[in-house]
Design a protein around this nucleic acid. Structure first.
Lengths: 256, 256
DNA sequence: ACATGAATATTGGAT
DNA sequence: ATCCAATTTTCATGT
């Protein structure tokens, strides 16, 4: 897995190492070093001399990490061109992206270590609890939202966006359902309100609006009430009820 | 900078290494290994056996990277508790976060290498081209938006959100300005529309709405026209005009 | 702790 | 290529 390693390299040696390992195109390359980082593109930034981990993945994506947080200090998704060289006696990496036009430049002021690693493509990845899944589930079992609900459409496009679930209730009224997998904010209420308004205009019928989410912020609930809309508490990760013989949630998902 | 390294460790040795290095609390720890990763919390996921880079930073944040993309496959911001052990002859790391209640579990099936690194806190970081900066600039130079504009307020709260810039035009009409540092979508138009409506209701006056952004999507522009709102093309990274003696943008920023 | 909103958001999907 | 919407969004900020 670890293809090559270079400890305390001289600038020229580091540049050569990076050039060779990046050119191979099938490895992840890392450098631990005191660095100076410039970024220019959608925005622009300078990170003055400090210790960073610089990582270039197989797809040309670049990330510069510091000692804390999940997010890198500097990054660049899938770059199109990477050039390595020695400038003013310092190894330098320049990664460029064409659309949008962007650039990151890392100067390795005091490299401690460089590493090249091959990571094979890896096995299956299954995620449970997405909004898409929640939508599929409710389309199949609309009674979870409300008894007697009949789903007419999913992702129905309107002039102001797509309606998650479009349905008719037991009394024959049209219903717009907006789903959120996490706590719903007032933005979700505005979204729902727009959809309801749009359907009212288009059909002339009376239209109900339901916000379905595990929870909602207090302002969102207030606003919902003011607009005559409804809230339905619904988890994205439902309790699996299989009569006591409980199965791990992910086993369920993987085999369904 | 590199504190410790362990090549092709046995499970017990890896567990001991991780325990010791993580307990120190002042280093970034990495493991390159074939792994199996479980996540459970806001959602839930399983990554079946595959090669990954697992990184635990000094703040307890965890990220599991595969061979591509900037975003990790699995992650966990600033965890509260990390436990390492050997289970079924395999070294296992379990990181837990309390709010929200979340957990990542990594089983190191075939560890190739483990690394402990100290990254010092690093130097200054300056970013240019944020929306906040754009807002400050326009508040000082509202004529960039429109001649004769007088700014009344910034981040003015309404019942439906905060107005970026609130102003009065040369003709004495109220103006709501919505800023976007990137291409504006129809969501930005809806936002602006809500603000304008809210101010109209509150004041009874006539109110103009201006969307100021470097560009906007075609649907956004159409909608803007339909609602009687205006578009003003404005970059978040303005051309620096200093009479020909052009300076690098970031030098400007760093010294101002 | 909660709510809000920006972000160099990134990423995947649809058109 | 463009547009759109989700995201385990993360993160900083204000209350």
């Amino acid at each position: 897995m670890v293809v090559a390693q270079l400890d305390l390299p001289e600038p020229a040696a580091l540049a050569e190492f990076l050039d060779e390992q990046l050119r191979a195109g099938d490895r992840l390359v890392q450098v631990f070093s005191e660095c100076e980082v410039l970024y220019s593109g959608r925005a622009a930034s300078v990170a003055e001399a400090g210790d960073y981990l610089v990582m270039v993945k197989q797809d040309g994506s670049v990330q510069v990490h510091n000692y804390r947080s999940v997010k890198p200090v500097n990054w660049q998704p899938q770059t199109d061109d990477i050039v390595v060289g020695v400038e003013d006696g310092v190894a330098v990496l320049r990664a460029e992206r064409f659309t949008p036009s962007e650039m990151v430049r890392v100067a390795f002021l005091a490299p401690a270590m460089a590493l090249a690693v091959r990571l094979s493509e890896g096995g299956d990845f299954v995620l449970v609890g997405s909004e898409a899944e929640m939508q599929r589930r409710l389309a199949r079992h609309p009674e979870v939202v409300e008894a007697g609900l009949e789903v007419l459409d999913r992702e129905l496009p309107t002039d102001v966006g797509g309606i998650d679930l479009f349905a008719r209730d037991a009394a024959g009224r049209l219903v717009v359902v907006e789903l959120k997998r996490g706590k719903a904010s007032h933005e979700a209420v505005h979204q729902l309100s727009r959809y309801v308004e749009s359907v009212r205009r288009a059909t002339g019928e009376q239209v109900r609006g339901i916000l379905a989410a595990p929870s909602a912020t207090a302002p969102a609930l207030t606003q919902l009430g003011n607009l005559g809309l409804e809230f339905r508490e619904l988890s994205a990760l439902p309790e699996v009820d299989d009569g006591g013989a409980s199965q791990p949630l992910l086993f369920e998902a993987a085999t369904s």
